[in-house]
Design a protein around this nucleic acid. Structure first.
Lengths: 154, 154
DNA sequence: CACAATTAGATTGCGTGCAATGCTTTTGGC
DNA sequence: GCCAAAAGCATTGCACGCAATCTAATTGTG
């Protein structure tokens, strides 16, 4: 690796981080607009998508899927509960576990909001093969970074 | 486009958003660890990088570069000011503008923190051509989404 | 069975992000 | 010069994200 490569690396690595940071905020912004009619935020929508596809889940399972901890999920789920979208019930057989389940209203949202993914896809303007490739790259990068974070924590 | 393509599109578009969201949080987490010795957050580090490379900037110029508004930057800059990293001075010739400039301490951090980008690059495990391609893809996507957001706002 | 260790959630505290609003200063139209 | 419009920033309010801590319940070990 030449000295030029080495210095371009540094700049590019920081640009890559910033690009992901900026892209994530821009798409969250798009979601904010699309979800506004239902008064939902993007992470709340993610919870909905998980419950639609997987059925009732514990807070821990939700957190594993979305990479969010109880410090984020507890108040978020409380708000969605207050909005009548889901219920939280402590399990009988294991009093530590709280199971999150959609209400009829939460289930009904699946049809009401069926056009959201397509609308969002239009906003991004990425064709199918490119989207596949980006998802693959981002996943690999996320896995690598998470492993580095875990290794450094121990 | 077949029906299968159409349904894969929807899923993939949502996966792409989530991938960016997850990747952004994972890298921010890596930065959190690397910046901990200096008590800095990732957006604070971004402000530092901007001021290192471009010199004193107004709050507006910083906000344009980082896509952050005064609601985020004002308290952030206040904290960095309190930490002795930078100063905020209202301009004489235009009383609306506040110019942000690094202190000697803020400038000194450039050398102290010179290894941060390389450390972060290692965490991500992406080679140079792949990083270039990802930055390009993410930029284009961000631009497209931002244009869609602006168009919908008007 | 007793009891330490573990697990699942909730809570607290702090720093973003961002919409909405307010204030001050400057600019542009007349 | 006057005054409405615009620009630049600060503040408020709310919802994340996440570290740290706490509580309650369960599990594992002897």
């Amino acid at each position: 690796m030449t000295a030029d490569d080495s210095s371009e690396r540094r700049v590019l690595d920081e640009m890559l981080c910033f690009s992901m940071y900026a892209a994530s905020r821009a798409t969250t912004q798009a979601y904010r607009r699309l979800l506004q009619p239902w008064g939902l935020t993007y992470p709340q929508y993610l919870v909905l998508v998980e419950l639609w596809s997987r059925g009732p889940l514990s807070v821990r399972e939700l957190g594993d899927d979305l990479a969010l901890d109880s410090g984020t999920l507890s108040p978020l789920l409380r708000r969605m509960d207050a909005a009548g979208i889901l219920t939280r019930r402590r399990e009988q057989n294991d009093g530590r576990v709280v199971t999150v389940a959609l209400t009829a209203r939460g289930l009904a949202l699946r049809n009401e909001m069926s056009s959201v993914p397509a609308e969002l896809g239009r906003c991004m303007g990425v064709d199918l093969p490119a989207a596949r490739a980006m998802v693959e790259d981002l996943r690999r990068l996320t896995d690598t970074v998470n492993r580095a974070n875990l290794a450094a924590a121990s």
